[in-house]
Computed example of a mutant assay.
Amino acid sequence: MTQTALIPRARLRVLAAFCGVGGDTAVYMAAGCHVTGVDQTPQPRYIGDVFHQGDAIEYIRSHGHEYDLIHAGPPCQFDCTLTAGTNAAKRAGYPDLLEPTREALKATGRAYVIEQPPGRASKRMRIDVTLCGEMFGLGVIRHRNFELGGWTAVPPVHRPHRGRVAGMRHGKWYEGPYFAVYGEGGGKGTITQWQQAMGIHWTEVRKEIAEAIPPAYGRWLATAFLSPSTLEVAA
């Protein structure tokens, strides 16, 4: 995919809900946006303009209307593969954040993005765009689905993968052009390899890298949202 250059416009205000370390924040800022992040846990390496520690959904309800665009990636444990099948009993320990997040976003009347990995959550959301690391030449596959509210975008073509994910499987090492950026298990690459694969260089904490989306995804979303036609729809 040929990446369209970001076009800085008026300093739009973006809210990054469940922001983590700020994988999406970096490129919204590069596009000239003022970005506020909110997360339940401390994020000392968050790179946005402002950070609020607190409940993201409550913050959206109270302040979401103050922003031009809200990017929300609620934690997915309730719907992910780690709480499916034989691990289904673990699901009860995680809250269902998808529906409350969507309700809060819609109530603001503002344009929004909901981001989730493939899984049960994808069956409960409208998938307007799916992004993959291969679209951007990254060293991760890392599929992510996005629901767009109050604006539209033409999704990029999903390129064929070049091989498998490198790592240890049942005692055997497999080579591949991608790294598995999640978990603490062995055979998943070094921190430096994770940073390069994801395009995240401002943190060396594995958990923070693993919970982020590649900045290239945020770049694509920011570019799409900041196009003249999109701004007319979102106005």
Rank of each mutant, 00 (worst) to 15 (best):
G189I: 07
S122I: 00
Q195W: 01
K188C: 03
T230L: 13
Y174D: 06
D96Y: 12
G199L: 08
H63T: 06
V154D: 15
E58N: 02
L221D: 06
N87T: 09
I60M: 01
E211L: 10
P117W: 05
A56V: 03
E147R: 00
E211N: 15
G171R: 09
L231V: 03
G54L: 03
R9V: 01
D96G: 11
D24H: 15
M125P: 09
C19Y: 11
G139C: 08
A235E: 10
G22Q: 00
P155G: 14
G22N: 07
G32E: 11
G171K: 07
L148K: 15
I57Y: 06
G163E: 06
R13L: 09
T41N: 05
H65V: 05
A31D: 01
A121K: 08
W173V: 00
W220Y: 15
Y112K: 02
Y178R: 05
E232K: 15
A92F: 06
P228M: 00
Y112N: 04
W194V: 08
A153C: 11
K106F: 05
V140C: 04
M125R: 11
D96V: 03
W173H: 12
Y59M: 00
E99R: 07
A56I: 05
P228N: 03
I114P: 05
V14W: 12
T86Y: 11
S122H: 00
L97R: 05
P95S: 13
V38T: 13
E134R: 14
R206F: 03
Q3L: 15
L138K: 07
G109S: 13
I191R: 02
R124E: 10
P118Q: 11
H201D: 08
P75R: 11
A212K: 08
T223L: 12
K90S: 04
H34R: 13
R91L: 02
T101M: 11
P177D: 02
G48Q: 09
Q196G: 10
G218R: 12
P117A: 15
H201P: 02
R91H: 06
Y217T: 03
G133N: 07
V38F: 13
A88Q: 09
A16R: 02
P155K: 14
P100A: 02
P214F: 09
A216E: 03
H52I: 08
P155Y: 14
G22T: 01
K172P: 01
V154N: 14
P42K: 11
P228I: 08
S229G: 06
R219G: 10
G171N: 01
L15M: 06
H170D: 01
R45E: 14
P177E: 01
L231P: 07
A17Q: 10
D96H: 14
